[in-house]
Design a protein around this nucleic acid. Structure first.
Lengths: 152, 152
DNA sequence: CTAAATAGTTAAGAATGCTAAATTATAAAG
DNA sequence: CTTTATAATTTAGCATTCTTAACTATTTAG
């Protein structure tokens, strides 16, 4: 069924982390009054530095109308700033406000807090081995084709 | 700002994998006609082996009524089976059907496919180092307090 | 046996999020 | 300059999802 044990291990660790992370994150999102999609949007905006309305909609798999409506709510909550792109005034530039960045980072912390606990169970030797390995993965991931929106 | 570089690396890898995985997953979910919550439910049911209605609702952060309605739809789509618990006939036992398991696994594949590509960029030595490291992490994660629903 | 608690469902109504279509503004092509 | 294309928004309507409250069935406690 599977190609090789190495890839299985890679996938296994991913599933373990996903499962550990989601519960806290779901509850944080709910208490903060934002949906998972809202967080997805904030995350995408931060990651891209800035983002247009349509592009964000494509990322989330919805129409530009839906994207526009969602962003309108985030503007009202003062989590994002929406300004004209001076180079092409049809386009809007979307960036996070300080509050938006704060909320996002708090969400990420909720999602990753368990990693602090995990680190405490590791010896210094183990940490060294693991850090070396993860640095390779992080580095190689950068060389992979970026998951950019398809043009068509 | 951060405790130690090791934990930063741990978190960094998690963020990189999350970001890589979500785009494909979002689009797969959309095309399959299921919401992210539906997948969350299917995943939780598989992971727990079986699950009650209220417990699943707690996991997803919704009332038992909402959980019940959602499960009703999954039953109609023949993705889950809902039967009486013989030990306590107030309780329903929820399990995946074969089709439910298939859909879930396809979603997981969509989410993890990029890891196959990543593996191809690694040398055998690197793979060995990484496998060793991840095996430690997977093992230690098991010893952590399980993220079980709080009783109250 | 009766009363209280628990699990799940159902119904009604509110909120949310989505789409398609029309609209406005700007840019690019001829 | 005119036409066409693009980006975003607004509107109207629809589908989904959630909550609260009422209800049924079953179990547990007294």
């Amino acid at each position: 069924m599977h190609s090789e044990p190495f890839v299985d291990t890679l996938k296994k660790w991913f599933e373990v982390s996903m499962h550990r992370s989601m519960r806290n994150f779901i509850h944080y999102a709910r208490n903060s009054g934002l949906s998972m999609s809202h967080f997805g949007a904030l995350f995408h905006i931060q990651h891209r530095g800035t983002s247009g309305v349509t592009e964000l909609g494509d990322h989330l798999g919805v129409t530009s109308a839906a994207s526009s409506q969602m962003l309108e709510r985030l503007v009202q909550q003062e989590l994002i700033l929406r300004t004209e792109d001076p180079d092409d005034r049809r386009v809007k530039q979307i960036v996070l406000t300080d509050e938006g960045r704060r909320i996002l980072e708090e969400g990420i912390r909720a999602r990753q807090g368990w990693l602090d606990d995990l680190a405490k169970t590791l010896s210094d030797d183990e940490k060294e081995t693991i850090k070396l390995a993860l640095d390779i993965l992080i580095d190689k991931a950068k060389t992979l084709k970026q998951p950019i929106e398809p043009e068509s």
